[in-house]
Design a protein around this nucleic acid. Structure first.
Lengths: 295, 295
DNA sequence: ACCCGACCCGAAAATACCTTTCAGGGGTGA
DNA sequence: TCACCCCTGAAAGGTATTTTCGGGTCGGGT
């Protein structure tokens, strides 16, 4: 950090200092300047501290605060803290670039959070609610729901399954391609099969969906590429966002966020449609867990 | 629940209050709520004033400030002033209430996306980067990393494991409590054990962490309640945000988002520290998958 | 050149505020 | 029912802030 770049902020306080400067005595001016140049730093100081830093006395500091229109140093300090916060938050949107190797950990957190937020916004914007509604309707009425996913998408599949089970739906997640196909054969009209694949071309996931499709089940594809292979066997296609991946943030990471949002929407939708069953089921599972923790 | 209008702002402080609320006593909670609901108003009050307003004593106010992570009331008050300033400087809160049964599907998508974004922001704001850095350093140097998680947290554990494996780290996820303990016994100094539990009181997850802790491994807890049981065996605690859950959006959902962000940060951090190994490993796994899709 | 008045300024007293200690009270589990 | 623990507020104890006050300096007048 360079030494006094801070001085150029355009707060109301700085202008007040400038206006009043001519009518100030030397010592008071020193204090006022210090305060205008580094609000954040001064906010952290006590009267005594600021007096020392400016080479003056406590009395002078208080006088300065009064002159600037505050009831005392306490008031000035509060205002300073506010300024500091604003200053800091104004600096936040400097996140444009991706994550690089030498980013400090603080930046990593900020950037990741920011990117995931972007992903969520993109997904929400790009989601076809008509398709989603259809998928929800089908899932809410289904005898059973099978979900296929492999690798990172496999976890999303399990997440969906866990939640559907919680609200009394019968759901299964399959990561094993063979078992998936074996189970898909059991499906028939009125059942629902959901395939989750970011690329849309994961053979191991497409295959069971194809089987389910041919057996007459309602099929749903959650994918980032709406024109990919998987969609040809899908009655409803839910599109996840394909945000750019950087070297340190592989595709799996952003696609997962996106997939989870879609899956959550699906879940909440189903819960709404089957509220009479879902609500007590949720309560029951909540209590069961609470009991477990208590013991 | 009271129906204060102001209470819906999404500051880091509000989320911290929510996070810690369960572990708070009545009086402290009263103070915390007052502070979260009206930062600006409280910033203008002295300890005595705030004590009177909340019908408690000065001691309690100071205790609350400490609990929220400030050195004393002075610190809290400064932070409050900052918040107040930020709040005032043009912020359109767009108060979205929770999701209700009769929301159309379009609203569900929008609200879910918004809430998850909030969760991300809160998590990022509340994450202790020093703790995170320490955890990263330990994980980057570890001989092996074991991750414990059950239920929804189990999926997060698997997610972390998958990613660490991708960059050449040796990692295992355990959802089976018995196997987890059995494996924990194998750990020793230089190894890392990570427990993921939202409530912080999941016995099946605490137990293996305790074992790992006693065997001399570096232990990390990822939890929403930083004062909970799990932290007593944790060298480093990473706090996830506890956003309010609604009936249709159970805790598992928001905690998952939060946990995943933390896990991602951990992953990226480790990838940075071990860049020479991580980068080629990522490329290799990417190509292996591309090849698989092509066929 | 000297004196006088006005005004700045900082040391120290006075006060307000914050923090800590301590003992009573209420709830909980045995 | 009893004992225990932990929360809680009253009051003592410490800082931080404010006020007071007297020394010092400077400019103008004699």
């Amino acid at each position: 950090m360079t030494q006094d770049v801070k001085g150029t902020f355009g707060g109301a306080l700085a202008s007040k200092v400038r206006t009043l400067a001519p009518s100030m005595t030397r010592s008071v001016q020193r204090v006022a300047e210090a305060v205008a140049n580094d609000p954040a730093g001064c906010a952290a100081l006590t009267v005594t501290g600021l007096a020392e830093r400016t080479g003056t006395s406590e009395a002078t500091v208080v006088r300065t605060a009064r002159l600037l229109g505050y009831p005392g140093y306490r008031g000035l300090r509060l205002a300073l803290a506010g300024l500091a916060a604003q200053q800091q938050s104004g600096r936040a949107p400097t996140i444009t670039t991706g994550i690089s190797v030498d980013d400090p950990i603080t930046d990593v957190v900020a950037k990741l959070a920011y990117e995931e937020q972007q992903t969520l916004a993109d997904t929400a914007a790009g989601l076809d609610t008509a398709q989603l509604g259809a998928a929800v309707t089908a899932a809410a009425a289904a005898r059973r729901v099978d979900v296929y996913g492999i690798g990172a998408s496999g976890l999303v599949a399990q997440d969906l399954t866990q939640k559907l089970l919680r609200i009394g739906r019968i759901a299964h997640a399959h990561s094993d391609p063979h078992l998936a196909v074996t189970n898909a054969v059991q499906l028939r009209s009125g059942d629902v099969a959901i395939a989750i694949t970011h690329s849309g071309s994961t053979g191991d996931v497409i295959e069971p969906l194809r089987v389910a499709f041919e057996r007459g089940a309602t099929t749903v594809a959650i994918t980032g590429l709406p024109n990919s292979a998987v969609t040809q066997y899908a009655d409803h296609v839910l599109t996840t966002s394909t945000s750019r991946e950087t070297e340190l943030r592989p595709a799996a990471m952003s696609s997962r966020t996106s997939q989870l949002l879609v899956v959550d929407c699906l879940f909440v939708g189903v819960a709404q449609r089957t509220y009479d069953i879902a609500a007590p089921a949720l309560t029951a599972s909540y209590e069961a867990l609470a009991h477990r923790h208590r013991k």
